[in-house]
Simulated scan of single mutants.
Amino acid sequence: MDSSFTPLERAALDAILAETGDDRAAVECQLLRATVRARENTGGGFFVHLNVPDEVELLNLKSAPLGEDVWIGVDGMEYGLGAILHCKHGCVSLLEGYAVGPEDTSSIDFGHVSYAIIKAPGRFPEHGR
């Protein structure tokens, strides 16, 4: 398994970072050193389990998870995905992409699907990636 982020995962993380605010630099520092431990298509989205080195500076977040308004239009999905980044014990630990509507994602290959970051939940735009 590849331990680096897929383009969709990287785009979701970049969008989450863009709205992180004061904690952005610390979260970004951890993400630069993070590797993917495991990926799971849950049927209702995906989980990307992360590892960060023990020597990273711990986050002092006022709120977690991160990602209140991150939406991804995915080719083949009517409502798309929301994305949030979970933190545990001061470290980024899980990127979650969750189906906004009642859709089965079991057949979607999130590593190779066409997607686009969008402003609100919805379909994959024609001009997307």
Rank of each mutant, 00 (worst) to 15 (best):
H49P: 12
L50G: 06
L50S: 08
N51Y: 08
V52N: 01
P53Y: 09
P53C: 01
P53I: 09
E55Y: 13
E55T: 13
V56P: 06
E57N: 12
L58G: 10
L59T: 04
L59R: 07
N60E: 14
L61G: 06
L61C: 11
K62L: 13
K62R: 15
S63N: 13
S63V: 10
P65C: 03
P65G: 05
P65D: 00
L66M: 12
G67F: 00
D69Y: 14
V70A: 02
W71T: 03
W71S: 00
I72V: 07
I72N: 02
D75Q: 12
G76D: 05
G76M: 04
M77W: 05
M77H: 04
E78A: 13
E78K: 12
Y79T: 06
Y79Q: 06
Y79L: 08
Y79C: 11
L81V: 07
L81A: 11
L81G: 10
L81Y: 04
L81W: 01
L81K: 07
G82W: 00
A83Y: 00
A83K: 03
I84V: 15
I84N: 09
L85T: 00
H86V: 13
C87V: 12
C87L: 10
C87D: 05
C87T: 05
C87E: 03
K88E: 13
K88V: 14
K88H: 14
H89R: 14
H89V: 15
G90F: 05
G90W: 07
C91M: 13
C91F: 09
S93W: 04
L95K: 06
L95T: 02
L95R: 05
E96A: 15
E96P: 15
G97V: 09
Y98P: 02
Y98C: 04
Y98Q: 06
V100I: 12
V100G: 01
P102E: 10
D104Y: 09
D104A: 13
D104L: 10
T105R: 03
T105I: 08
S107W: 09
D109I: 07
G111S: 10
G111C: 10
H112L: 13
H112E: 14
H112K: 15
H112A: 14
V113D: 02
S114D: 10
S114R: 15
S114H: 14
S114G: 10
Y115Q: 04
Y115K: 05
I117S: 00
I118T: 07
K119R: 15
K119V: 10
K119G: 03
A120I: 10
A120C: 08
G122N: 03
G122W: 03
G122L: 05
F124S: 05
F124C: 11
P125G: 04
E126Y: 10
E126W: 09
H127M: 12
H127N: 10
H127L: 11
G128V: 00
